[in-house]
Write a protein that binds this DNA or RNA. Structure first.
Length: 572
DNA sequence: GCCGTTTTCGGCCCGACTGTTTTCAGTCG
C-alpha cells in the first residue's frame, strides 16, 4: 500500500503546483479528489493497475490512469518532473503559511524571487513585498504572524487532546450572565471523530450573534484573534490550536451543522445531488428557488435529497452516499453497547493498579466482564509474567470472582508474538486461560504479516492486539499486509483488536471497515493500565463507527455467554 | 482533469471574512 500513499501525495503536490501556476480550479480539484480517493482506497493501487482496474476508482480518468501507470513503472511522472523543476523548492511549506495562498506566492516569486520562508521573511522586513500591488500594512503583519505560527506548532492534534478543550469552550459559551445560546455543538472533524484534527469547529445557535462572538473572544486561553465578523470568528489558542466558531439563527441549525460537520468531500456530493433535484443547499438551509424547504434539523436536510440521516462518523465520501441512497447504511455500534473490556493490565506487569482495584473500577464503569491480559515473559521491558506468576495471578482472579455476582473477571494474557512467529507461552499454558490476545511488541522489521498469520493459526488465540503497531504522530505502522491478515482472520475465526488508546487507534477506521466487510469480528479494548484509561473506550468506539461497525461485529458488545460460545467455535 | 435518465461539451458546492478595494480578488473551510 506504499504506492497509494506516494501517488496520493504526488497528486496533492501537483495540485498545489497547478494552483501556484494559476491553472483551472476544476482541474486542480480533480487532482485533489484523485489524491483522496487513492489514499482512502483499501485496494493496493499497484494491484489495481496490474489487473487493469484503475478505472474502478471514482475520479480517475484516462489522463490520471496514464500518470499512475507511469509512476508505477518508472517511479516518476515526466509531466510532474518538468513542472517541479520550475517551482521554488519550499513552495509547499510557503503555502502552508496562513494567508499566503497560491496567488500571493506566485506574485512574490515572479516579482521578488521568493523561494523560501527565509526569503519571505526578508522581503516582509525590508518593505519590498509591501510595495507590490494589493499588499497593505495589515496583510504584511498577518504574514509575519503566519510565519511565527508555522514555526511554533505541529499541524495536527489527537482527538483525545482536543476534546477537553472543546468542553471548556462550550462551558465558557454557556456561562454568560444572560443566556446567549440556544444550542451549541462541536462540528467538523471532531464530530466525525477523526483520530487527529487540525482545528476545533464549534457551531452555536443564537439570535444574538454579535454578543455571542464577543463572548467567545473573551475565552481566557486565546493567544490571538485571527478574524471575527458578524457570524463567525477564528482564534488561536495558547497551545497552537485554532478554534472556529460559527453562529447561526434559529431555523438554520440543522443545515449549518450538516455543512459545518463536513467532510468537504461529503458535502460536495450532497450538494451535487441537491442541484440535480433543482435544490440548493447552503449552511442556512435547503432552498427551492428562494424558498427555504428544510434546515431546522440535519435529518431534514438529508431527507430533502431522499436519504436517511447519515451519522457524522460516516461522512467521508467513502461509500456512505451510495449506501444511504440504497438504504443500506450500517446500524452503528454505540458506546453503551460495550459490555466488557478484554484488554486490561495490572500491577502484575506494567499496569499501575492491583487486579482488585481495576476490577472494582471496571464494574463501576458498568461492565459485565473484563479480561486481565498482562504481558508475557519475553516482554521484560514491561515486567512480563513468568509461568509461575501467571498461575498466581489466575488464582487471585478466581478468588476475586467469588465476590461478584454481577461481574466476571477473565484470566487472560497478552502473549508476545516472537520474532520467529511462535508465541511466548506454549499451547499447554494458553489452553488454561480464559482469554488470549497475541501482539507484536518487538522486532518490527521481522516480517510482521507472517508472524501475525502464524499467531492466528493458533487455536487458543482469540484476538490479535493492535495489529499494525502504529503510534499516531510517533511511529509508522509496521509493514503488515492488512488484506492478507483479514483473509486469514476469516479462515481462522480470530478477532482483530481496535485498541482504543488515544495514540494507537489500531485498527484504524479504514482497516476496521475492510475487516467488517470481510466478516471478521473485532474487539474494542482500551489496553488500560490505570482506571482513568477506561474512558478511552470512546475513541475506540468512534473509530469503529468510522469503520462502519455494528454491535454484531464486536465480540465485547456481546454478553459473556455468546462470547464464550464464539471462543469455543474458534478453538475447535 | 472528470463525467453524463437533462449533457461526449460544458458544466464542476457554496459562502464568510479580510484587506484593499470603489466593486472585488484572495484565502479559507
Amino acid at each position: 500500500m506504499l504506492k497509494n500513499k506516494e501517488i496520493a501525495q504526488l497528486f496533492t503536490k501537483f495540485a498545489d503546483i497547478l494552483e501556484f501556476q494559476g491553472e483551472n480550479v476544476f482541474k486542480i480539484n480533480a487532482y485533489r479528489k484523485a489524491s483522496r480517493v487513492i489514499s482512502d482506497s483499501i485496494e493496493d493501487i499497484e494491484i489495481l493497475w496490474k489487473e487493469k482496474r484503475l478505472s474502478e476508482l471514482s475520479g480517475i480518468g484516462k489522463a490520471l490512469q496514464e500518470k499512475i501507470s507511469e509512476y508505477i513503472q518508472t517511479g516518476k511522472v515526466g509531466a510532474f518532473e518538468n513542472l517541479i523543476a520550475e517551482i521554488p523548492e519550499e513552495l509547499f511549506t510557503l503555502l502552508s503559511i496562513q494567508g499566503y495562498g497560491p496567488k500571493t506566492a506566485a506574485l512574490a516569486h515572479k516579482e521578488l524571487n521568493v523561494e523560501t520562508v527565509e526569503d519571505l521573511q526578508r522581503v516582509l522586513e525590508d518593505g519590498r513585498l509591501a510595495a507590490l500591488p494589493g499588499m497593505g500594512a495589515k496583510k504584511i503583519m498577518n504574514l509575519k504572524k503566519g510565519i511565527e505560527f508555522l514555526k511554533s506548532v505541529s499541524d495536527r492534534f489527537s482527538i483525545a487532546a482536543v476534546l477537553p478543550v472543546v468542553g471548556a469552550i462550550i462551558d465558557h459559551m454557556q456561562n454568560h450572565k444572560e443566556p446567549l445560546i440556544n444550542r451549541i455543538l462541536p462540528a467538523g472533524s471532531i464530530r466525525r471523530f477523526k483520530e487527529t484534527v487540525h482545528d476545533i469547529d464549534i457551531l452555536a445557535e443564537s439570535d444574538k450573534s454579535r454578543d455571542t462572538i464577543k463572548h467567545f473572544l473573551s475565552f481566557p486561553a486565546i493567544r490571538r484573534k485571527i478574524g471575527a465578523g458578524q457570524t463567525k470568528a477564528s482564534v488561536l489558542l495558547e497551545d497552537g490550536l485554532q478554534v472556529d466558531l460559527r453562529v447561526v439563527p434559529s431555523g438554520s441549525f440543522g443545515a449549518a451543522l450538516q455543512y459545518f460537520t463536513g467532510s468537504q468531500a461529503h458535502n460536495v456530493r450532497v450538494r451535487e445531488l441537491a442541484r440535480k433535484k433543482g435544490l440548493k443547499i447552503n449552511e442556512y438551509g435547503v432552498f427551492q428557488q428562494e424558498r427555504q424547504i428544510a434546515g431546522e434539523s440535519e435529518a431534514e436536510v438529508y431527507q430533502s435529497i431522499d436519504m436517511p440521516f447519515i451519522a457524522p462518523e460516516l461522512r467521508e465520501d467513502r461509500g456512505e452516499i451510495e449506501a444511504a441512497l440504497e438504504n443500506r447504511l450500517p446500524d452503528l455500534i454505540e458506546i453503551t453497547d460495550i459490555k466488557g473490556d478484554l484488554h486490561i493490565h495490572s500491577l502484575y506487569s506494567d499496569g499501575h493498579m492491583s487486579i482488585a482495584e481495576m476490577a472494582g473500577h471496571l464494574r463501576d464503569f458498568g461492565y459485565e466482564y473484563a479480561a486481565i491480559c498482562d504481558h508475557s515473559k519475553s516482554a521484560f521491558y514491561a515486567n512480563g509474567l513468568s509461568e509461575e506468576r501467571l498461575w498466581r495471578q489466575q488464582d487471585e482472579i478466581r478468588a476475586l470472582n467469588q465476590q461478584y455476582t454481577d461481574f466476571t473477571l477473565l484470566s487472560g494474557i497478552e502473549v508476545d508474538i516472537l520474532p520467529d512467529g511462535t508465541l511466548d507461552f506454549s499451547d499447554n499454558v494458553l489452553e488454561q486461560l480464559d482469554f488470549v490476545i497475541a501482539s507484536i511488541h518487538s522486532a518490527f522489521k521481522s516480517d510482521p504479516t507472517l508472524r501475525i498469520m502464524e499467531a492466528m493459526k493458533n487455536p487458543f488465540v482469540d484476538v490479535i492486539g493492535h495489529p499494525t503497531g502504529r503510534l499516531i504522530s510517533r511511529r509508522e505502522a509496521y509493514s503488515v499486509d492488512m488484506k492478507t491478515i483479514i483473509d486469514m482472520a476469516v479462515k481462522t475465526g480470530t478477532a482483530l483488536e481496535i485498541n482504543s488508546f488515544w495514540d494507537r487507534l489500531d485498527l484504524n477506521d479504514i482497516h476496521s471497515k475492510l475487516a467488517v466487510e470481510s466478516g471478521v469480528k473485532l474487539a474494542i479494548n482500551t489496553d488500560s493500565h490505570h482506571d482513568q484509561h477506561l474512558e478511552m473506550i470512546q475513541f475506540g468506539v468512534g473509530t469503529a463507527r468510522r469503520g462502519w461497525c455494528s454491535k454484531l461485529d464486536v465480540i465485547n458488545a456481546w454478553d459473556l455467554k455468546r462470547l464464550k460460545d464464539w471462543q469455543k467455535r474458534n478453538r475447535l
